[in-house]
Simulated assay, not measured.
Amino acid sequence: MASSERDIWAPDEDPWTARAEGALYALGASYLYRVAEEVHLRLGLPFPQGAYLEALRLRPQAVAKGRGLSREEAMARAEELYERVLAGHERLPPARYRELAEAVTEKWYAEGRLETRAQRRSVAAYLLGMLRGGKRVGLGWRGLLGERERERLAYVAARGAEFIRKLKEATRQAVAKVLLLWHEEGGGQPKDLEGKLQEAFGGLARDWRRVAITEVAHARSSGYLAALPEGATVEWSAAKDACPRCRALHGRRFRVRHAPGDPREEVWPGKGWERGPTIPLHPHCRCRWIAVTQPVGEVDPEIEALAQAVIRAAER
Rank of each mutant, 00 (worst) to 15 (best):
E102R: 14
V35S: 07
C243A: 06
V39Q: 08
A158T: 02
M1W: 07
R257L: 12
P260H: 06
R84H: 09
G68I: 07
V296Q: 15
V104W: 02
A232H: 04
L249W: 01
K196M: 12
L249D: 00
A248Y: 02
G28V: 07
A307P: 07
L56H: 09
D241S: 08
P280M: 09
P46F: 02
F254E: 01
A205W: 06
Y97W: 13
P229H: 01
A20M: 09
W16H: 13
E90M: 08
L58K: 08
E5W: 13
L32M: 08
R142T: 12
A307M: 15
H89P: 01
L144Q: 14
E235I: 04
L86R: 03
P15E: 11
K271Y: 06
L139V: 05
P277N: 06
A154W: 02
A307E: 14
L181R: 15
L281Y: 05
A242K: 02
P15S: 07
L86P: 08
C243H: 00
G68R: 08
L153P: 04
P280F: 07
L53W: 09
E315G: 13
E54L: 13
A176W: 05
V292P: 07
A36S: 13
L225N: 05
E79V: 15
A232W: 03
G202M: 05
L180K: 08
E72Y: 05
R220P: 02
V299H: 11
G231H: 03
E162T: 10
A174W: 09
I290W: 11
